[in-house]
Design a binder for these strands. Structure first.
Lengths: 238, 238
DNA sequence: TCAAAAGTGTTCTTATTACACCCATGG
DNA sequence: CCATGGGTGTAATAAGAACACTTTTGA
């Protein structure tokens, strides 16, 4: 066996290094009823004019996670956001200009925090309901599908849904979020019983304002308590 | 934003392409009592003499999965083996000779199928209990840990454990396999009740031979039935 | 006849499901 | 006073956990 883990013939080196790697970031948001994904409209070939996932080549001295964070920040202005690596996509012909493997990530952001930035404006970034995404550039439909499946698994086993909600939310909003992600209806009483029984929600003793019906109580995710529970062996399961 | 997804300045191209990617394969086996991993002793710098995960650079016209299969086959002679991509590792300085990101896989093989091949002999390949692996080359300890965690999750939610057992096995062997992977004791009666209630095991009406005690019944995993159940919405859970 | 592992059921506790009505508010 | 969504409990069922003795075989 040859390889950089062992040693390679000089003639092989050139072709081994004619390759590059990128990150692509599936940025999820929730608008109160639909799970959305932030797409950009490509301004250059290949796939000019097509919708695509935001992504970029990884700089030579840049870690993969850092590259994914950079893509996100350039597009949205946001930092310190929930980010999860999902999978490497490396089919030989996935990129028309050369051998480029891409590391797929997803991010969860509070959609209200997103304001159109110069970078995103220039790229016509916009939110699309995940159920209504059409044909994307490259293998980005496959990447989106994989990330969505990964999110569906994750959201039931870790309290990551809260990353998509404002700091203060109602139980109905939380339920609608789960219904949008899991693409399934949940029973209101059972959902509330279960989520409240975990003792991870702080009752803020505040009410919704400006709604034309009985206002709902506002809650906050109690991360400190969650971490204390985890340290004692608790594992989130919904 | 620049990048191959958009366009890049010529001066950037060279440095972007001074990079390579590899696959590393955590090959798991089960010897009846311990979960084992197949390691090679490095014959060349860097880390000469150290134990490492088998891996290699990905060829320019080779898919990632294909590269992982190739590494496995060169070492063990085995094909059509259970293989799962886990994560990309890409810390800037993870490889002393340049920027190399690696895509980590794990494979599950029947340890009895493994015979020392010329390639594995030349590399001093050998099995190590996962609980007794020392310091490995590169970031391979981190990769091994991540793959082991991934396997622990997977083995409870999909019938992949059978990949590590011979075609005919006893319930005690199956239980010992789960105990080795999960690093936990399981209740014999509850384990049997649960696994048999799934109706995925075919009772072969054969008994163990050559044991100095009451011989156990032999079972076989019934993949066809499993796939039929999955098509009807069943999901394995142990 | 002994050693060693195989095989087998019941009870208790906990989690999950299904389900329908009254309440508080703004317009 | 009406429309809208908020909020609440119980009973039935299913799943999980704890637990100990008898059986079969080879040596």
């Amino acid at each position: 066996m040859t390889g950089i883990n062992g040693y390679i013939r000089m003639s092989e080196i050139e072709s081994f290094f004619k390759s590059a790697f990128s990150v692509d970031n599936v940025i999820f948001g929730f608008d109160g009823s639909d799970l959305k994904v932030l797409l950009i409209q490509r301004g250059a070939a290949p796939f000019k004019g097509k919708w695509a996932l935001p992504g970029d080549l990884v700089y030579p001295n840049e870690n993969l996670d850092t590259a994914a964070e950079r893509v996100l920040e350039q597009l949205t202005g946001l930092r310190d956001v929930y980010l999860e690596q999902v999978k490497a996509f490396g089919a030989v012909n996935r990129h028309p200009l050369g051998r480029v493997i891409t590391i797929a990530y997803y991010s969860l952001i509070k959609i209200s925090d997103f304001l159109v930035t110069p970078a995103s404006f220039a790229q016509s970034a916009s939110w699309h309901a995940v159920s209504e995404v059409g044909e994307l550039a490259f293998d980005h439909n496959e990447i989106l599908d994989t990330c969505l499946k990964s999110l569906k698994r994750k959201v039931r086993r870790a309290p990551v849904g809260f990353e998509l909600l404002p700091p203060k939310f109602t139980l109905t909003e939380l339920q609608q979020l789960y219904e949008a992600i899991l693409d399934d209806k949940l029973d209101k009483r059972n959902f509330r019983k279960k989520i409240l029984s975990m003792n991870l929600l702080l009752d803020l003793n505040e009410l919704q304002e400006g709604v034309a019906h009985r206002p709902a109580k506002l809650y906050q995710f109690d991360r400190d308590t969650y971490e204390a529970f985890v340290a004692k062996g608790f594992s989130f399961d919904l």
